[in-house]
């Protein structure tokens, strides 16, 4: 889908922002670029839609060199979302979402239908939100609109630069779930930049950890946690919290004993094992009753089973 070969970019300073980097992104992946600030992750993202032109190297999207396409045409075929300030303040929600379709000269009826469809997809009532201005929305709602706008023209690739950075943890969590759902539903290729390792582990199917313009390690979330390539990766994924983050990757459903039962307030099978651990400790019990998403008893989770790994 996206092939980057030996790309480099230097802005003014002596040290390159992106240094001779090659990266291959398969169609349908959810790729998270992560690193501390100045690691080159945003620059790398912005090269994909030519907001930044590399000094050297080549980038192919669907096998075509992006330099052979007009930047505007390329960008209209890719969704783009940044932190919540990115909505146009003088346009309503509907106008904001319809930006790219309008640039692509869709008919008004088609744009209106698409706007309503996307608002519904992101759980915003079209009748209520269509005509609001961004300042009349909460931060989380603004970010939903930002995501809807990125999806508007049904792009194959979604580029997101710290889209949830400015949100409170609860709203961020809800939107992360939302994004995962949309990704699973649409099969789009997503490239997301973040500096939050928990966000990266939760969202990414493929994580690219960057430092000083180079890739330090890439792979599945589990690979980074279990086999950190060096001390830097080990530090970055959080020395003392690696265990918790491993637990966060799995859900209760994978560990529960179906034919057992336990007493107390049941937990959902969808919960992550990290949250389940927290519940064990908070309630001072060693087994928890589990219900499925319809609320029917599904079995019990044993504290000792948290340690078993079937992966």
């Amino acid at each position: 889908m996206i092939e980057m070969t030996q790309v480099s970019k230097t802005f003014g300073g002596a040290r390159p922002a992106v240094d001779d980097l090659s990266l291959s992104i398969a169609a349908g992946e959810f790729v998270v670029l992560i690193g501390s600030s100045g690691s080159g992750k945003s620059t790398l993202l912005r090269m994909i839609n030519r907001l930044v032109e590399p000094d050297r190297g080549e980038i192919l999207v669907n096998g075509v060199d992006i330099r052979r396409q007009r930047p505007e045409d390329l960008r209209r075929r890719m969704g783009y979302a940044i932190q919540s300030i990115g909505l146009f303040p003088h346009w309503t929600v509907a106008q904001n979402i319809g930006t790219v379709p309008r640039l692509l000269k869709w008919t008004k009826a088609r744009i209106d239908a698409r706007v309503d469809e996307l608002l519904a997809l992101l759980h915003l009532d079209p009748a209520e939100f269509r005509h609001r201005y961004p300042h009349q929305l909460s931060g989380g709602q603004q970010q939903r609109v930002g995501v809807a706008r990125a999806l508007a023209a049904d792009p194959d690739v979604l580029l997101m630069d710290e889209p949830f950075g400015a949100l409170d943890p609860v709203t961020r969590g809800a939107l992360q779930e939302e994004l995962l759902r949309i990704h699973a539903l649409s099969g789009k290729t997503v490239v997301l930049v973040t500096h939050d390792i928990d966000e990266a582990l939760q969202l990414g199917s493929h994580i690219v950890l960057m430092n000083q313009g180079r890739i330090v390690q890439q792979g599945r979330p589990l690979d980074l946690l279990r086999r950190p390539a060096n001390a830097f990766v080990h530090d970055f994924v959080g020395r003392t919290e690696i265990g918790l983050r491993l637990l966060a990757l799995d859900r209760v459903a994978g560990r529960l004993r179906p034919n057992e039962a336990a007493v107390g307030e049941p937990i959902s099978a969808d919960l992550s094992l990290r949250e389940a651990l927290s519940t064990f400790v908070a309630r001072r019990v060693d087994r928890l009753p589990v219900v499925d998403d319809q609320g029917r008893p599904a079995g019990a989770l044993f504290f000792s089973d948290l340690l078993e790994r079937q992966l």
Binding site: E72, R75, I85, G86, R149
Partner: peptide, 25 residues
């Protein structure tokens, strides 16, 4: 700055950015 950046990132030409985003704001 975010409005300018996003206008470019969504594929507006410099003229479209000026007329649709910068001047109205």
């Amino acid at each position: 700055e975010g409005a300018r950046e996003v206008a470019r990132g969504l594929g507006m030409t410099p003229a479209q950015t000026l007329w649709q985003v910068e001047l109205p704001l």
